[in-house]
């Protein structure tokens, strides 16, 4: 079945089984390997992408559910000004160590800042509660989101 959607600002039509995971379409069909697979069951958030600007676990989303929607992966987000602000805040605050959770963390951080440009620590922690990090202990990530908030994430 031909699935039409917008991927990183480009209209695409991909002929795959409608039940195929968005994650597998991104990595195996589109060769966008910035989106990571951790647990494969929606617990870890490493596979987070934006669908219509909302963060979702691409391991739980069948490709049919993005039909007609806009998908942004870390590769597409990398082209934005917001990415520069958030990624440099992660670098400055030590919010990334092994890096496996980072693409998902960055997209989830963007999603919270887009809705709420000046979130509290608690609001950041809730917004990132679906993204696990085994290196940083989270405080460095919360600090990074706060720094990005101070610098202002231009949409």
């Amino acid at each position: 079945m031909e699935i039409k959607f917008v991927l990183n600002h480009k209209q695409v039509a991909i002929d795959v089984n409608p039940s195929m995971r968005l994650l597998d379409v991104l990595r195996d069909v589109c060769h966008l390997t910035g989106t990571k697979e951790g647990c494969g069951e929606g617990e870890c958030g490493a596979c987070t992408v934006l669908v219509n600007d909302e963060p979702v676990n691409s391991c739980l989303m069948p490709i049919i559910n993005v039909f007609g929607k806009e998908v942004i992966t870390i590769e597409g987000f990398r082209e934005t000004k917001a990415y520069k602000v958030i990624s440099s805040a992660f670098a400055d605050m030590g919010g990334s160590q092994c890096g496996f959770c980072t693409p998902g963390m960055i997209l989830a951080s963007y999603a919270v800042l887009r809705k709420n440009p000046h979130p509290t620590d608690e609001e950041i922690r809730i917004a990132l509660s679906g993204n696990l990090c085994r290196c940083t202990g989270y405080q460095a990530i919360v600090n990074a989101v706060k720094l990005a908030s101070e610098k202002g994430v231009k949409l």
């Binding site: 979702v56 739980l60 917004a127 993204n131």
Partner: peptide
Amino acid sequence: IASPNIRNM
């Protein structure tokens, strides 16, 4: 319930 990411789906 679950996480914000899952509640978006």
